[in-house]
Deep mutational scan, measured.
Amino acid sequence: LVRYRTISKIPQITLNFVDLKGDPFLASPTSDREIIAPKIKERTHNVTEKVTQVLSLGADVLPEYKLQAPRIHRWTILHYSPFKAVWDWLILLLVIYTAVFTPYSAAFLLKETEEGPPATECGYACQPLAVVDLIVDIMFIVDILINFRTTYVNANEEVVSHPGRIAVHYFKGWFLIDMVAAIPFDLLIFGSGSEELIGLLKTARLLRLVRVARKLDRYSEYGAAVLFLLMCTFALIAHWLACIWYAIGNMEQPHMDSRIGWLHNLGDQIGKPYNSSGLGGPSIKDKYVTALYFTFSSLTSVGFGNVSPNTNSEKIFSICVMLIGSLMYASIFGNVSAIIQRLYSGTARYHTQMLRVREFIRFHQIPNPLRQRLEEYFQHAWSYTNGIDMNAVLKGFPECLQADICLHLNRSLLQHCKPFRGATKGCLRALAMKFKTTHAPPGDTLVHAGDLLTALYFISRGSIEILRGDVVVAILGKNDIFGEPLNLYARPGKSNGDVRALTYCDLHKIHR
Rank of each mutant, 00 (worst) to 15 (best):
L129V: 04
T352R: 12
V210K: 13
S283N: 10
G325S: 01
Y344A: 07
Q127P: 06
E64P: 14
A247N: 01
F190A: 14
K287C: 05
V321L: 13
T120A: 08
A238R: 01
T347D: 10
V447N: 03
F185G: 06
C232V: 05
I177M: 04
I284M: 11
V321R: 01
L229S: 04
A225R: 05
I166V: 05
A224R: 03
A235C: 14
R208Y: 04
C400T: 06
A291E: 01
T102E: 01
Y80R: 05
V136Y: 02
R71L: 15
Y344L: 13
G396Q: 15
Y288Q: 01
A338S: 06
L145W: 03
I332L: 08
N265M: 14
H439G: 05
I77Q: 01
W262L: 01
F171Q: 01
V212I: 04
L93F: 09
A430I: 07
V180A: 13
F108H: 01
T445P: 05
A119I: 07
M433I: 09
F101G: 01
G249Y: 01
R429S: 04
Y274A: 01
P282R: 01
L187S: 13
L413V: 10
S313M: 14
A125T: 12
E158P: 04
T102Q: 01
L200G: 04
A106Q: 15
K287E: 01
C400E: 09
I144Y: 01
S313T: 14
W174L: 05
G199I: 06
E121P: 14
T347A: 10
D137Q: 11
A107F: 01
F333Q: 05
S298V: 13
H264S: 10
T76D: 01
I177A: 10
G346H: 04
H169N: 09
G443D: 01
W240E: 01
L263N: 01
M251E: 03
A69V: 06
R371K: 14
Y124H: 01
Q68N: 14
A182V: 10
W89E: 01
S81T: 07
L93E: 01
I96E: 01
E115Q: 06
V210T: 11
Y246T: 01
E376A: 10
G123F: 15
H439K: 01
G280E: 01
Y222V: 05
W262R: 03
T311K: 01
P369Q: 07
D143Q: 01
F294T: 01
M231R: 01
G123S: 05
K395E: 13
Q253R: 15
L176Q: 03
D257P: 14
M251Y: 13
I366M: 04
S161L: 05
Y65M: 13
F397M: 06
D186P: 15
A224Y: 14
M251G: 01
E196N: 15
G164Y: 11
A348I: 06
C427I: 14
Y246C: 01
L145R: 01
D404L: 02
M328P: 01
T76Y: 07
L263C: 01
Y384K: 15
A167D: 01
T290C: 01
I340G: 02
I270T: 03
A449C: 12
Y219K: 04
A247D: 01
S301Q: 10
I339V: 07
M231A: 01
G223E: 14
Q341E: 06
A130L: 01
D178W: 01
I144F: 01
L428P: 01
D186H: 14
A403Q: 10
R349Y: 12
L93I: 12
